[in-house]
């Protein structure tokens, strides 16, 4: 399935390459919210050897970073994307005698393709105003680090630090609406809002494959981003 999608995208892009007016490179930074229901359950159900542990972080929304490289022709724009998301959850307690904490740190690396269609192009003075709709899809490579730590200051030998790494993949679809403000011929300001829907969520596995896993990582949520688009003209 993945190969088929990739092949179709490649055909589409190569077919349009000849007509491309400019190469675009863009970087967006923004904020995303995440579903993470399995992870939240896992964090809350974690048994610790202390009774007064409290959840301090429950996979809150956090900064997202996004880079895209594509081609633009007429009102179309398409290309590849790479994004990075991360969040974490933690429950535990720390006092003068030591600490006991359980942490889950999630990182998502998104690789995919996008297609952007410009709804209208308005010129205001020297600036341009281009609202667009966009559809992105691809894979999220997840990496979850689980850490279970106990530290006793007066007797460090009592403590322990257990770290486990899980990995898995999600497939996502992300519709978006955005506006490009052309600042000059080569640079545009980009603002967009989107919703990422992780359509397929793979159960995560430890790096030791013999052990089963019971959770998945759901990055579904709203995205708000802003950034810059650089245009490199391909036709003179």
């Amino acid at each position: 399935m993945k190969k088929v999608l990739f092949f179709i995208a490649l055909l589409f892009l190569s077919g349009r390459f000849g007509q491309a007016q400019s190469l675009t490179v863009e970087y967006n930074i923004g904020h995303g919210t995440y579903q993470m229901s399995d992870m939240k359950k896992r964090l809350k159900n974690q048994q610790l050897p202390v009774t007064n542990a409290q959840v301090t972080d429950l996979f809150p929304g956090y900064v997202t970073q996004d880079t895209r490289v594509g081609f633009e022709w007429r009102r179309h724009q398409a290309g590849v994307l790479f994004s990075y998301m991360n969040t974490a959850g933690k429950t535990g307690i720390t006092d003068y005698s030591g600490s006991c904490n359980y942490e889950l740190r999630d990182k998502g690396y998104k690789f995919g393709i996008f297609y952007r269609f410009c709804l209208v192009k308005e010129k205001i003075s020297i600036f341009t105003f281009e609202p667009y709709v966009q559809l992105s899809t691809g894979v999220v490579l997840n990496r979850v680090q689980e850490a279970n730590r106990l530290f006793v200051e007066s007797d460090p030998t009592v403590g322990y630090q257990l770290e486990t790494c899980f990995s898995g993949k999600n497939f996502f679809v992300e519709p978006a609406f955005g506006i490009k403000f052309g600042l000059c011929r080569r640079v545009a300001l980009n603002v967009s809002v989107a919703y990422e829907w992780d359509v397929v969520k793979q159960k995560h596995q430890r790096q030791d494959p013999g052990l089963p896993s019971t959770f998945n990582v759901d990055w579904s949520g709203y995205r708000a981003q802003a950034g810059l688009i650089f245009y490199l003209n391909l036709k003179k």
Binding site: N52, A53, Q54, T56, D57, P60, Y62, V63, Q65, Y84, N86, T87, A88, K90, T91, G92, I93, T94, D95, Y96, S97, E103, R105
Partner: peptide, 13 residues
């Protein structure tokens, strides 16, 4: 540099 920073449940006993 943009890793989420975890909070601390510090109990002052």
């Amino acid at each position: 540099s943009c890793e989420y920073r975890l909070g601390e449940n510090w109990v002052d006993l």
